[in-house]
Design a protein around this nucleic acid. Structure first.
Lengths: 253, 253
DNA sequence: GATCATAGTCGTCTGCTTGACGATAAACAG
DNA sequence: CTGTTTATCGTCAAGCAGACGACTATGATC
């Protein structure tokens, strides 16, 4: 069969971002308020069209920088202060997911340390960090005028749920939890990341033994800090290891 | 900003399939020979355009059925004899990955039991099962006229490598290895699946203890078989469990 | 400055899982 | 009948995880 441009239907391709961070002991996601129909006024995940000459990962990194000022972490490059982990999550292409036209969205997952404040992009849209529980529990019982309580636009609740599940399982067997921490952090801060992402309490003593005993996970910087109160804690940086063997174990049930 | 259809460039969207099976103790993938340029005569992964009214998973299931006669396994539906596991793998959208036009490909991963013989689809293209080692090791040293030894078309070697890596890691912590087995199988047959996918030898005694001791992994059917030679082995069906806890451990290095 | 609260760090003990491997069982081939 | 093959059960030691006691070093409070 010869090449026939009319043999395939045209699609719009977008990237949507699930940007996660840990704030005040809660897992939070970045949400932007939509300024135009459909779903005008509702909250949605940040995202945008892929340009004609752009790779998917490039488009995702560009959107991330526009929305947050963060840049994607290059594993080969130097350690930079404002770097976030960025990876492809999944692609969503239900024919009816956007009422305007056929849109295929390649969702990406970004993990960032706690940022001072969300920074609006070039335009003046509202941007906020919201606990993922709040964003996901709004599917039912939305009746009031409260715009904060409306479900996410499009299929973004599903995308967010998939991203959260990916993050929850990936910190089990990789060192990705350090992506939620500043460059230097304590064992206790890392433990609070696990507790926030998994929504469980972990034994500080066993956690300390586990992470300090896993080769390549943490490297001590020599410094200490007392910013959490209590006895000063050693500061660490993320080690070179990306896969944890044996993995961290998420408590049952 | 108002809705402007000219604000985004049009893309073609395809699905490509990494179909894996275990044949003669080797992990094999389905390859089709391209009948048209570019890469005419070269081997490629099966795939095709997503139709205008089709979901991505629907398009992948349709292509799978066209190429192999297998249908995607519905987790909620009944156990069917010719069902394969099908899941989304990743999406590839480098602007130059197809020289003709801008194509975004949503790759899917299918795991199937050993089939009698590859069945060509509606047209008469060549289709074959090839060991993944052969397909992936052909990136270098291709000089002869031997078309069997040419590297895969487009970025399909990369896609295949990603699919193989997904399968290798996923059988660690899920019961997916049973997707490579017929409906009823023995512990030894399941072990040979693990050995083929991981490329290692496993201790039959420890493997037997592990899989029979994991609740929900295997359900005895009561029957036995002697098709492997030696003492008759119990037959099992896949149990309801999808996540294995604790996981199967892949031997080191 | 004594006391308390808070957080971090080190140890101990017990039970479970794993890996190595011996032993037995049930089929078939010669 | 004997050897070969595959399946299955058991034993043992090493290692890891969960429960939890004990001690340390800060700041806060009286």
């Amino acid at each position: 069969m010869p090449y026939d441009p009319s043999a395939f239907p045209p699609f719009a391709v977008t990237v949507d971002l699930v940007v996660l961070t840990v704030r005040r002991h809660a897992l939070c996601a970045l949400a932007v308020r939509r300024g135009e129909p459909p779903y005008q006024g509702r909250w949605a995940l940040p995202g945008g069209f892929v340009r004609g000459d752009e790779d998917l990962s490039t488009a995702a990194a560009r959107e991330l920088a526009e929305e947050t000022g963060l840049h994607a972490h290059d594993p080969a490059g130097p350690l930079l202060p404002n770097a976030a982990h960025l990876e492809q999550l999944a692609t969503y292409g239900d024919p009816k997911r956007d009422p305007r036209m056929r849109v295929v969205s390649v969702a990406h997952l970004a993990l960032a340390p706690d940022l001072p404040a969300p920074r609006a992009g070039g335009d003046a849209r509202s941007v906020r960090w919201a606990p993922v529980e709040d964003l996901l529990d709004q599917e039912v019982g939305y009746a009031r005028e409260d715009e904060q309580a409306a479900p996410l636009a499009f299929d973004h609740a599903r995308i967010l749920a998939d991203g959260v599940e990916r993050a929850r399982s990936k910190i089990e067997y990789s060192s990705l939890a350090t992506a939620f921490c500043p460059q230097e952090f304590t064992v206790g801060e890392l433990r609070r990341v696990y507790e926030a992402v998994w929504g469980v309490a972990l034994d500080p003593r066993n956690f300390h033994r586990k992470v300090t005993g896993t080769p390549g996970f943490l490297v001590p910087t020599g410094g200490t800090t007392t910013r959490q109160g209590g006895r000063p804690a050693q500061l660490f940086r993320a080690g070179g290891a990306t896969l944890l063997n044996p993995p961290m174990l998420r408590p049952e049930a």
